[in-house]
């Protein structure tokens, strides 16, 4: 009897927390669902970009926000996904949907190759190594024949689903919406599981985590691979939407923008990261009127946010 009373708060708490998140979440989802019906092609295009950044930022959030690993080369995994899918459909005539598992596996292998030797390093060193890795992937893509060199890869097939071909921007908007929802679900599921908690333990105190029985290298490697897999799936869909990709889509700047979304919104927490991703996608559009002053305005806005909201706009309560 006493035991029941004692364990009750544990069961009740997530429920309470859920309602305050679910209602605004559902409202946002409803808006997202009807948006293309009312908006013009330009707005839908920008919204699609925002959804792409939501997926990428949620993926990077696993690495940076959950496991506390500073990754400056995340766009590399985005590139691995895009090129794997692009090459397989354009050069070998693969079905688009079949390229997704191949891209995921490739990203996993890339994640292990770069992660296994480097994840023993602590934050600053890891940042430098991942930055280098990002550049290596881009330069390889520039110099291989199969990737189309500097001019890139063209003629990537549009995906088909049940005989329906994804062509227009609205179609890709919905495809990215599904992917974003799926990614959020995956993040939420892991966040509340044994492995998700292990990442937080490692992030907050690596030595204490090891002392309590957590293999820190495996935990970090899994977070790194999970982030890589999510970026690669986003890459597949991105390649299909653009039908042409070039190494310039996967620069250090791209990695930085994704990281910016994670940090801006408040790393570690899904709603904050989503907000940050939307801002990263919208900011260049909103500031179009500023013309050549755009970088200056962006920089001032970022500095202001970092000064007044150092933990992000919608921070993790834990921090």
């Amino acid at each position: 009897m006493i035991d029941e009373v004692r364990t009750m708060p544990a069961a009740v708490q997530p429920q309470l927390m859920r309602w305050s998140v679910v209602l605004p979440g559902l409202a946002a989802l409803a808006c997202a669902l009807v948006l293309p019906q009312f908006a013009n092609a330009y707005v839908t295009e920008v919204a699609t970009t925002a959804l792409l950044y939501i997926v990428l930022c949620l993926g990077l959030n696993i690495v940076v926000g959950y496991a506390g690993l500073l990754d400056l080369g995340y766009a590399a995994f985005f590139a691995v996904g895009a090129y794997t899918s692009g090459i397989l459909t354009a050069e070998f005539g693969f079905n688009f949907w079949l390229t997704i598992p191949v891209a995921m596996a490739t990203a996993c292998v890339a994640g292990i190759i770069i992660g296994a030797p480097t994840l023993r390093l602590r934050s600053d060193y890891l940042a430098i190594v991942t930055l280098g890795f990002g550049e290596i992937v881009r330069i390889i893509a520039r110099n291989l024949d199969i990737t189309g060199g500097a001019s890139g890869l063209v003629g990537i097939e549009r995906p088909e689903i049940f005989g329906f071909k994804l062509m227009q921007v609205q179609h890709f908007y919905y495809a990215f919406l599904v992917l974003a929802l799926l990614t959020a679900f995956v993040c939420l599921s892991i966040e509340r599981s044994r492995m998700g908690r292990a990442w937080f333990y490692v992030r907050y105190d690596e030595d204490a985590a090891a002392g309590i029985g957590i293999n820190r290298v495996t935990a970090k490697l899994q977070a790194y691979m999970m982030g890589a897999v999510i970026a690669s799936v986003a890459g597949c869909l991105y390649a299909a939407k653009m039908t042409a990709i070039s190494p310039e889509s996967f620069t250090f700047n791209q990695s930085l923008l994704i990281l910016l979304g994670v940090v801006l919104g408040g790393m570690g927490r899904i709603p904050g990261v989503v907000l940050g991703a939307i801002l990263v996608a919208l900011l260049p559009e909103v500031l179009r009127g500023a013309g050549t002053y755009r970088p200056l305005v962006t920089a001032v806005a970022l500095l202001a946010i970092m000064l007044f909201r150092p933990n992000g706009l919608w921070p993790d309560k834990r921090v």
Partner: peptide
């Protein structure tokens, strides 16, 4: 307190998803 149980349990990412 739950962190202590990590090494006594086994389910990973895939089963959580």
């Amino acid at each position: 307190a739950m962190s202590g149980q990590h090494c006594r349990s086994r389910h990973g990412i895939v089963s959580a998803i």
